[in-house]
Design a protein around this nucleic acid. Structure first.
Length: 638
RNA sequence: GCUGAUGUGGCUCAAUUGGCAGAGCAGCUGAUUUGUAAUCAGCAGGUUAACGGUUCAAGUCCGUUCAUCAGCUCCA
């Protein structure tokens, strides 16, 4: 007998060879029905997987990440099967499950159109009705190769050839279709009750732009029809939060053909930007940062020295002044180096934290531009920390804490990544190792979960990145902490140590918000345009009932302006309902309706963005509430 | 840059097989003086992204360019 430890800690004894599904059945037939895959000793497995030794087992349903994964992975096989039926000459590349559904990369001459997608979708539904079960089989390397070669599946051939020597090569078969796959998969196509092919895109084989571009079809499937409806609704809701849409509706910013990737900020958008920057300055002053500003354009010689010329030239804009070549800065660091070098430094000055809200220009590919999230001109909330080697860990931790504090203010959750040495980099392997270890060490000390992102560091050093989510769940890098031993060498930076000798400082390059533009975009989507009071462009709008109340409305607004509240009056000759609707759509947090009653009685009728009419409040109480909400950067209105 | 899609007043969208570019909102003018999500009427607003082509006739068909959208690649 073997002992199987379940997720809740209970231990059950079974005959060796019992399958995951049989364990589920033993617990309850209902559970068996919804179990899609298993997590056996930490590995994802099929439900038909026999268990031969003492194990821990977690039964995975659609609600579990692993269950979804198996379900969607099978969705991708179903998609491939349908495509192969309709277009037998199509060659299959890869078809993984992703966070929301799955895709399959396919090489075929026929260009997939929306009509063809519909046809494929119908074929998928038909296949489901045919009721195939899915079977796993293992093959030797040579048999597997022979199989895919015979089928002419050149991409599969390459995949197999690249598998490690000791890899178990498995195929999953459903009806006439079988595909190379590590699994796990669900066991029965019939549990797929809803299918939707979502979109179409080109994707390079192996993600390398030198390779052929394949057609990638994205889709999603669900065990219940209602889940698809709910999902599509969720996407509709997310569209309403899109910062590009809200930016227009709330008149915050705009983009024009005359300057693709160069955003224009409108008066209301500037209020939010300025509030963000004020907040940023306060936080940084408190934590011992000084602020600097470096020029937008600098001589190309500087960029040659910094390594940008060799490693970043494709992303830079150039111009000429008096026959000399100049570059528009894509990063703030070289300018910061010059400021450090302007005078000698003692170890007593370190760590030296120099912040800069620096506007940088980068030539991003035309197809990569995306609202405020990816632009060609943005303001980094940059800072360079010059320090002695033994200050590194403490400084990295301080930046991590700063980022956490700042994100908390907005109620963001974030993901952390550690990126290591890229191919196109400068500096010795030893330096890279030291730097990477230092960052990892700081993360471990803070007990932060992070994802490793090999080869994705900056050209001068490894980095810790902070990723925030947009309304569709796409993540964007915002904060970053990059450790750099190279710039100090290239710029011959030094400080005088307690021994009276010259020493090399190390540098942290870091941002917290990342780019003000991107952060603003995330902020808009995060709040759905309903900004907390401290950020709202208009915090209070006073709406007089009729003309005779204009003076009173004005006096109320003035009193609020006195204490620094952004208050305005809506004097338009429109009905009350119209002006309230307008204020609601502008997502103004507080509305004050003033008429005869208020002018006589003193108390004011307050309406809040989310809760509607909330009754009367005295002007003094209102002032106190506003001051409190703004000062504490409260995320709520009442 | 690559793949696919899209581009019509400030915004949201109409316009049969190629056959007189239209509506709502916003704007302006006037009436209306309003009590918690749209008062009524009138006026104005367009070289249909740009350029070229086919045609008696192009918003519609073809080509080129630009921009936008979904991805790929890249990245804050």
């Amino acid at each position: 007998m073997i002992d199987i430890t379940l997720k809740d800690g209970t231990v059950k004894s079974y005959e060796p060879g019992i399958t995951v599904l049989e364990v589920a059945k033993d617990i309850s037939p209902g559970l068996a029905k919804v179990t899609l895959a298993g997590e056996l000793n930490g590995n994802l497995v099929d439900i038909c997987q026999p268990i031969s030794e003492d194990s821990t087992l977690n039964l995975l349903k659609f609600e579990d990440e692993g269950g979804k994964h198996a379900f969607w992975h099978t969705g991708s096989h179903l998609l491939a099967q349908a495509v192969k039926r309709l277009y037998p000459q199509a060659l299959l590349a890869i078809g993984p499950a992703i966070d929301r559904g799955f895709y399959y990369d396919i090489d075929m001459d026929v260009i997939v159109t929306p009509e063809i997608m519909e046809k494929i979708e119908k074929e998928m539904a038909k296949i489901v009705k045919e009721g195939f079960v899915i079977e796993r089989s293992e093959m030797s390397r040579s048999d597997a190769l022979a199989k895919v070669t015979k089928e002419g599946e050149i991409y599969k051939e390459e995949l197999i050839e690249n598998l490690p020597e000791d890899a178990i090569i498995s195929f999953y078969t459903q009806g006439e279709f079988s595909d190379l796959c590590a699994g796990p998969h669900i066991s029965d196509l019939k549990s797929i009750k809803a299918i939707k092919l979502m979109s179409l895109a080109g994707a390079y084989w192996h993600g390398d732009e030198k390779n052929k571009m394949l057609q990638r079809i994205y889709g999603i499937t669900f065990p219940k029809k209602s889940q698809l409806t709910d999902y599509l609704e969720l996407l509709e809701e997310a569209k309403k939060r899109d910062h590009r849409k809200l930016g227009k509706e709330l008149d915050l910013f705009s983009l024009h053909e005359e300057g693709p990737g160069f955003p224009f900020f409108h008066p209301k958008g500037m209020i939010i930007r300025n509030e963000l920057e004020n907040f940023w300055r306060e936080e940084h002053q408190r934590r011992g940062y000084e602020e600097i500003r470096t020029p937008m354009m600098l001589n190309s010689e500087l960029w040659k020295r910094s390594g940008h010329w060799d490693h970043y030239k494709e992303n830079m804009y150039f111009t000429e002044i008096d026959d000399c070549e100049y570059a528009i800065k894509p990063m703030n660091c070289p300018g910061g180096m010059l400021i450090y070098k302007r005078k000698g430094h003692s170890y007593r000055d370190l760590p030296l934290r120099m912040g800069e809200l620096g506007s940088v220009h980068r030539h991003e590919l035309h197809g990569a531009l995306h609202g405020l999230m990816r632009v060609r001109n943005f303001t980094q909330d940059d800072a360079h920390i010059f320090m002695t080697p033994d200050q590194i860990k403490e400084e990295v931790i301080k930046v991590i804490d700063l980022a956490d504090d700042v994100y908390k203010i907005f109620g963001f959750t974030y993901r952390v990544e550690l990126s290591t040495k890229p191919e196109n980099s400068i500096g010795s392997d030893e330096d890279w190792e030291t730097a990477t270890d230092a960052l990892r060490d700081a993360l471990v000390t803070k007990g932060i979960d992070y994802r490793l992102n090999p080869g994705d560091g900056a050209f001068y050093g490894p980095k810790i990145d902070f990723h925030l989510e947009d309304s569709l769940g796409r993540t964007w890098q915002c904060g970053t902490i990059q450790l750099d031993f190279q710039m100090p060498e290239l710029f011959d930076l030094n400080y005088i140590g307690s021994d009276g000798e010259k020493h090399r400082p190390a540098i942290i390059h870091r941002t917290i918000l990342g780019s003000i533009e991107r952060f603003f975009g995330i902020l808009i989507e995060h709040f759905g345009g309903k900004f907390p009071v401290w950020l709202a462009p208009i915090q209070v709008i006073v709406i007089p009932v009729a003309d005779v109340h204009h003076d009173f409305a004005q006096s109320v607004a003035n009193e609020l302006k006195e204490i620094g509240v952004r208050a305005s009056c809506d004097y338009r000759d429109e009905k009350l309902g119209y002006r309230i609707r307008d204020a609601q759509m502008q997502k103004i947090p507080y509305m004050l309706v003033v008429g005869d009653k208020e002018a006589e009685g003193g108390d004011l009728a307050l309406r809040m963005r989310d809760t509607g009419d909330t009754g009367l409040i005295s002007l003094d109480d209102l002032k106190e509430k506003l001051i409190e909400k703004i000062k504490t950067k409260s995320l709520t209105l009442d």
